[in-house]
């Protein structure tokens, strides 16, 4: 059976087609889910893609969390379904309370589109099950608000529970503890700032993102070759 990945489309999202293409390229099946829908029925995994949902007006993710589909996303996540938020999707998931912490403006106060290296810190999550701890992956980042922050107790808890999923090898944006991605307590909801879908094709400079999206497909029930 091939799992179906739902890619949530908000007005202002812009990486949704890239997510579809990369998942398809890796042998998965993906389709768009409109933000106004109240159901994610039939989806085995969800991706909240990058972009500027609702223009990022007020604050990235601040309006998107109120989109009708988000209740269904919450229920899906609470039932253990794999959910990955990439970039703006990570911001949306923190605003929606599905992941701890917040993303503030980059140190240096500039938008940054460049390829960086992240280290895989844990492999017991929906996004990293096929990776090896310590793997260093070259993956593009593309954000203005990617500077992860949280209070000291949350940080201690994230560390104690091994919930920092990927860390920057050379911190590009000021994130606390070099955090590039985190997961929830159930380890089925993961948010990260780098764009794995941009690193899945040999002509695009790196294929290091493929192991992450393959992990997502595996966690959704797709047999992975």
């Amino acid at each position: 059976m091939v799992a179906r990945v739902g890619v949530i489309l908000f007005p202002g999202s812009n990486c949704e087609l890239d997510a579809l293409e990369a998942i398809g390229h890796l042998g998965g099946t993906a389709e768009l889910v409109w933000h106004g829908d109240r159901s994610v029925e039939g989806c085995d995994a969800l991706v909240v893609p990058g972009g500027f949902a609702h223009g990022d007006y007020l604050r990235p993710g601040a309006i998107a969390r109120f989109s009708p589909v988000m209740d269904a996303v919450r229920t899906f996540a609470a039932d253990g379904g794999p959910v990955v938020g990439i970039c703006n999707g990570f911001q949306v998931l923190t605003e929606a309370g599905l992941l701890p912490g917040a993303l503030q403006k980059n140190a240096g106060l500039k938008f940054l589109c460049t390829t960086i290296t992240v280290r895989v810190e844990t492999t017991t999550t929906a996004l990293t099950s096929l990776a090896t701890p310590g793997d260093e992956l070259r993956i593009p980042i593309n954000h203005f608000e990617g500077n992860y922050t949280c209070d000291a107790n949350t940080l201690a808890q994230l560390r104690a529970e091994d919930r920092v999923v990927v860390r920057y090898v050379d911190n590009p944006n000021g994130s606390v503890d070099n955090i590039a991605g985190v997961c929830n307590e159930g380890r089925n909801v993961v948010g990260l700032m780098p764009h794995p879908e941009r690193a899945c094709h040999r002509l695009l400079g790196s294929e290091d993102g493929a192991v992450l999206l393959r992990s997502l497909l595996a966690s959704a029930g797709t047999p992975v070759a």
Binding site: L17, D18, K110, C113, E197, L204
Partner: peptide, 17 residues
Amino acid sequence: PSWVFRQYDHQLFLNTV
């Protein structure tokens, strides 16, 4: 020039070789 173009998304749509 990367000081300039790193401020631009130059990779969207997975076309940029």
